[in-house]
């Protein structure tokens, strides 16, 4: 009897035909909508003219890459992209992590639920709308300056044209807008932690704080790792839409990013090829980042994100 069961188990465990079938739809969708358009990448090596198409446009080798690398604003845009993206990635995980841990400690469930709903609200708004509000709040005669002046007697600061503060405003507002999203994911992971583990910890005399430290955090670490590695994939997407609607000439030194640069390229003169080259360059850099972080994580904790 036991033998039959064992045999059955073995057979079903190693039968993978069903698994292939399950993957089929995703494979097809990916082939059509992700791989098929990749033929367009040859554009980055051409002087692409839409009317001539991919077949007749002139091939120029790496000229487009040379062109974007020598653009005067390329260097500052590249550096800014890294700085902004780096802080956005770190904070957009750290802040929701703290929020979700705090939420998990809340006893009153109505409060917990309401807060959870409310922190999600900014996520629904588009940047076009939020930018208007943020510019109002941080204006020279805006609320923030009023508060600083009246409560702390600080001279008003022209935040919006300040190369010292504006980048921080960009990062902080982005983290604020998106924090509901990751909070929900992390909270899902926290509620998923095996209750028996807490019980065991309590039996061992662990305080609440110790429980968080030794039970909750290690249990949700995989989710945090996933979010971090996925975030690193977007290291060169520092938030185009937001910056486009919020920046101004005076703070360009500190917040101009690759994507806004490409946008200006495209608008200025239909430089499809230069834009494609920039895209390919971004892909390569992101790939390196994810690869390295994946590898580090795998070496350190034997955890595979993919």
């Amino acid at each position: 009897m036991a033998d039959v069961k064992k045999q059955k188990k073995k057979r079903s465990l190693y039968k993978t035909r069903e698994l292939h079938i399950m993957l089929l739809p995703a494979v097809i969708f990916t082939a059509i909508f992700a791989y098929l358009p990749m033929f367009g990448l040859i554009m980055a090596f051409q002087d692409f003219k839409p009317l001539l198409g991919f077949t007749k446009s002139e091939f120029v080798g790496f000229e487009q890459f040379a062109y974007i690398f020598t653009m005067p604003s390329f260097r500052s845009a590249f550096v800014n992209t890294f700085i902004i993206a780096f802080f956005k990635i770190i904070l957009s995980i750290l802040v929701p992590l703290i929020l979700s841990l705090m939420l998990n400690e809340v006893v009153k469930s109505w409060f917990k639920r309401s807060v959870q709903t409310i922190v999600f609200i900014p996520y629904f708004f588009s940047w076009a709308i939020l930018a208007g509000m943020l510019l109002e709040i941080f204006a020279y005669d805006g609320i923030i300056n009023n508060v600083l002046e009246n409560l702390f007697h600080i001279e008003p600061i022209a935040f919006l044209v300040s190369n010292k503060y504006f980048r921080t405003i960009i990062i902080a507002s982005d983290v604020w807008k998106g924090m509901g999203y990751n909070t929900v994911l992390l909270l899902a992971a926290i509620t998923n932690v095996d209750a028996a583990l807490y019980e065991a910890a309590r039996v061992d005399g662990a305080s609440r704080w110790e429980q968080v430290l030794h039970v909750t955090l290690p249990s949700i670490l995989p989710m945090v790792a996933v979010l971090t590695v996925l975030g690193l994939g977007g290291i060169l997407n520092a938030g185009f839409e937001q910056i486009l609607v919020m920046y101004n000439p005076t703070v360009e030194k500190t917040v101009d990013i690759l994507d806004t640069l490409v946008y200006r390229l495209g608008i200025a003169g239909h430089q499809y090829s230069a834009a494609a080259a920039m895209g390919l360059f971004k892909s390569a850099v992101s790939l390196i980042f994810v690869g390295v972080s994946y590898w580090i994580l795998y070496k350190k904790s034997d955890y595979r994100v993919f």
């Binding site: 510019l135 005669d141 008003p156 022209a158 044209v161 101004n248 005076t250």
Partner: peptide, 9 residues
């Protein structure tokens, strides 16, 4: 002018 006029489009 406003101190931060350059921020407004």
């Amino acid at each position: 002018f406003k101190k931060d006029f350059a921020a407004y489009d």
